[in-house]
Nucleic acid binder design. Structure first.
Lengths: 76, 76
DNA sequence: TGACTTTATACCTTAACGGGTATAAAATGA
DNA sequence: TCATTTTATACCCGTTAAGGTATAAAGTCA
C-alpha cells in the first residue's frame, strides 16, 4: 500500500464515465491487461501508456509534491 | 515537443542542488543512462524509476490536470 | 439458486526499457 | 588555443512491460 492513488483515481474516473475496463482500454488505445495493471497499482508502468489513459480524463502525469496528491480528489 | 516539462523539472532541480547527472543517478539508485533519458524527455520511462528520482526532490508522479503542470514551477 | 457481466490472475511471446560501456559532443576554465 | 568535466548518443544484453489468451473470481440481476 504505497499510497499509489493513481489506481483509485483511474478507477473512479472510469466508473464516473460509466466505462468498463475493456471500453477504457479501447478508447485509450492500450491493452485491457494494462488498464487492469494500472488499477491494481502496478508501479512499473510506462509513463506514455499511463498518459494515454489519463488523457481521456483531461489529466496527465506530472511531478507533484509528495504527500499532496490528495488534492486531486477535488472535482476538476 | 510534447510539453514534457518533467525533463526540465528534473534538470532544474538537479542543478539547483548542484548535482551532476552521475551524482543524481547514484543518489536515486538508477542508472546514469536513465537520468539522461529522463532529462532528454523520453516518454516511455517506467514510473517507479522516475519516482525514485523525484523522491530526492520531495516530489512524485501524480495525475495533474492537463495543461496545468506549469503550476509546478512555483517553489515548494 | 442460477445466468451474465465485469474484474482479477496466470501463461506465453514480442518488443523495448534499464543499464553498462564506449565514444562524441558540448560546456567550463586556464 | 588546449585540458577537464559534463552531457549526449550508439551498441549490446538481460530483464521485463505490454498485450493477447485463457481461466477463475467477484459482482449484478432475476
Amino acid at each position: 500500500m504505497e499510497e499509489n492513488n493513481l489506481q483509485s483515481f483511474v478507477k473512479e474516473r472510469r466508473k464516473r464515465l460509466g466505462l468498463t475496463q475493456e471500453e477504457l482500454s479501447f478508447k485509450a488505445g492500450v491493452g485491457l491487461r494494462f488498464v487492469r495493471d494500472l488499477e491494481q497499482g502496478k508501479s512499473s508502468l510506462q509513463m506514455n501508456k499511463v498518459n494515454q489513459v489519463l488523457k481521456l480524463f483531461g489529466y496527465e502525469l506530472g511531478a507533484v509534491p509528495a504527500n499532496r496528491e490528495d488534492l486531486l480528489h477535488e472535482e476538476g
